[in-house]
Nucleic acid binder design. Sequence first.
DNA 1: CCAACGACGTAC
DNA 2: GACGTACGTCGTTGGT
Length: 885
Amino acid sequence: MTRQRFFIIDAFAHIFRAFYAVKNIDHNAVFGFTMMLRKLLASEDPEFIAVAFDTSAPTFRKELYPEYKANRDAMPESLVPQIPIIKELIEAFNIPMVEAPGFEADDIIGTLAKRAAEKNVQAVIVSGDKDMLQLVQGDDIVMFDSKKGVEYLGESGIPDFFGCKPDQIIDLLTIWGDSSDNVPGVRGVGEKGAKKLLAEYGNLDEIYKNLDQIKQKRYREGFADARDRIELTRTLVTIRTDLELAFDEDTYRRKEPQNDDLRALYERLNFKTLMEQVPITLRRCETEYELLDNEERLKAWLDEIKEKAFVVFDIETTSLNPVDAQLVGMALALDADKAAYVPLRHEGQDPAWTERAETMLKSMMTDQNVTKCAHNAKYDISVLFNKGWEILGRIEDTMLMSYLINPNDSRHGMDDLAEQHLHYRTIHFEEVAGTGKDQVTFDKVPLDKACQYAAEDADITFQLYDKLYPQLKDLELVSVYNVVERPLIPVLARMENAGVRVNSDYLTDMSARMEDMIQGLEKEIYELAGEEFNLKSTKQLGEILFEKLGLSPVKKTTKTKSYSTDQSVLEALAAKGHEVPAKMLDYRMVTKLKSTYVDALPDMINATTGRVHSSFNQFVAATGRLSSNNPNLQNIPIRTEMGRDIRAAFIPREGWVMVAADYSQIELRLMAHFSKDETLVGAFRQGEDIHRRTAGEIMGVVPDLVTDDMRRAAKSINFGLIYGMGDFRLAQELGIPRKKAREYIETYFEKMPKVLSFRDEVIAKAREAGEVRTYFGRHRQLPELQSRNKNMQNQGERLAVNTLIQGTAAEIIKLAMIHLDEALSQSDLHASMLLQVHDELVLECPSEEAERVGALLQETMENVVHFEVPLVAEVHTGHNWKETK
DNA sequence: CCAACGACGTAC
DNA sequence: GACGTACGTCGTTGGT
């Protein structure tokens, strides 16, 4: 086993180095010092450690020699306030700091090193100062330059620096003097001379004894001249090793950092990346929660809930999928650390109890006057809706709060939030239910474990509510929470529960036909390529195309720098008449449609309901859009004929029809509203074809003379506008020279100047606030605008504009959904909302209601808000989704 | 053997 | 480097 090591760090040497090395940030020396320290701790993992500081008190050297260090400049102004922070930092790292008034850090280091070596601990001096080499002693005391990393400097390395033996260093330094410390040496004797004389005579005393033998007059005179002060110089350059300092193992043993203090410090200093790397000391559950397994205790709780008109709840079930989930139990919380669990269907429970307890819980959950709070309430109420419980009263959701507070974050799960906000490690589901093959459903979990797990979740949800709601208020997000997001929860729950009917036979038939096409294409491509390969491997395809067939590569992939074979590349190659890329385009389309949709959808049909129940996620998109998964029903094909046919597989229930409506050009209309540009506003008010009108403006012709190509170009510009497209991309898209694309964009802004000034204003405001706000008050932080990287900043600018437009459009359709849900429930209609695809709502209803539902749908969508330009929703009815166009 | 990642492609 | 928001499939890679 190697010896234990004691790292002694020269504080100011590293502070100055950090100060000059790190640029462009506040607290640069603190940052640089922190990085050095972290690196050292991580890579060297020392057993003992200390940081040595100089003090401002006059040192014995100054007393002996008033000119000592008199030539030093004052500490740079911006460094001065960083020193106490660095001391705080070292304290947070739990590393002892050593000061010795009257002495310098070097003397502390010298003394501690010697003491440690005496106790058979290797002393490692962390410093770049070569003067320190006088302290080096065999393997007992070595030097370590943190800048160079792992390089140790022991006795054997010394000749490389000084060209002399270790015990000659002090005399060598004496002869040289130290100009940076204002210590005079022997005048006229330089590096070469000093080394030569020491090699010849052994040490300084011998040199003086034999002074008259020295041939060079210059040297003789120099030494004679320095004779009176040479001892003083020797004292000044000699590092002391005799301070009253002991090497005490307990004092200098490395300890765990005070991570909470470190975090607080990093937070204060805005060291974000460092902060993320500090492990949080997490609290664990210490509360014993109440098991409510008899009527009296349950009643006592329900009475208190009724009185407070508030409860946090969390249900436990047998499945993450609400359609399949059986209610196993319900946890309740009324205060921090005050939570309980009601077991309902654990194995072996009395069905009579289940019924009595459910009746009591249902009456509470359907009580209009009780506010209910849950984490991801959509799941809980979906399950309860499926049991026929009409959940009433206000519903709060801590997951929703977290999302609104930081929509850029992807982690809003309770376990994550508990760690983040409460420094608390929750019992994870896997810990009570097992993992992988061994995982059991919650009804098999023993009651005591189930109680602690479930009640803790309710408890934590309560504590998160306490923490997050005030933040929601401070950030002025309560309005968007109450008006848009919170009321949407039950709407989405109903939509997911409804699901959509899918014609499985139709897809099976389609799949077989596609398989034939794929086989044919495969064969053709193999023949053209002269060999068989995996057509689905971009790597293999790239090698075939660009190595074997010798086609010239168009571009490389971003990360792996391999040949790109994406659609645009294949199209470019196909346009030159190459057959393999042309066939590959067909192959790609058919296999994509088949594997992603045609084959996947029938597998997603729920066995119980016979329908597909996609999730509509409210917490994913940073702009406020919904997202859909399992399956994603928001990217069902429409653009190609073959793709569009897939939509015919989505059918209404027997005797019903599909009714769908989509907003026409909602994002461009928002652009018109926000910018108030007369041309854009006018065009929408007149009900003109917006792309035709734009083309007319840009190309300078009357709308009637706009060709299809001109309209296509204008359409690209209109969409690009919303995304912040540049001339490069537009040129690529339209196949025109970049210069021409640039002209188009310039003319666009000349003709519609207010669109440009709107853009500039949004960006300026976002830069000022560090975030962008949508019409209904949702925010999105834009750290990109703070970046020193120009590309990042440009991206931040695009995000600002796009988030305002896309986010507001998302809010409008969310409101339409809320209003429609309300209107339908107030009516005698039987329609249900099935899908939302960003600007489109799809419903099903009995055939005879189609007209009324369509009218209600249109009316609702068009009147969510009244803006500068009308919102237009186009309604279509059909026997399947494909027909609703 | 599986998880993470990259490339690609579908939607608005 | 150049256009925003998502999700799913497949192949590859790299660690267990």
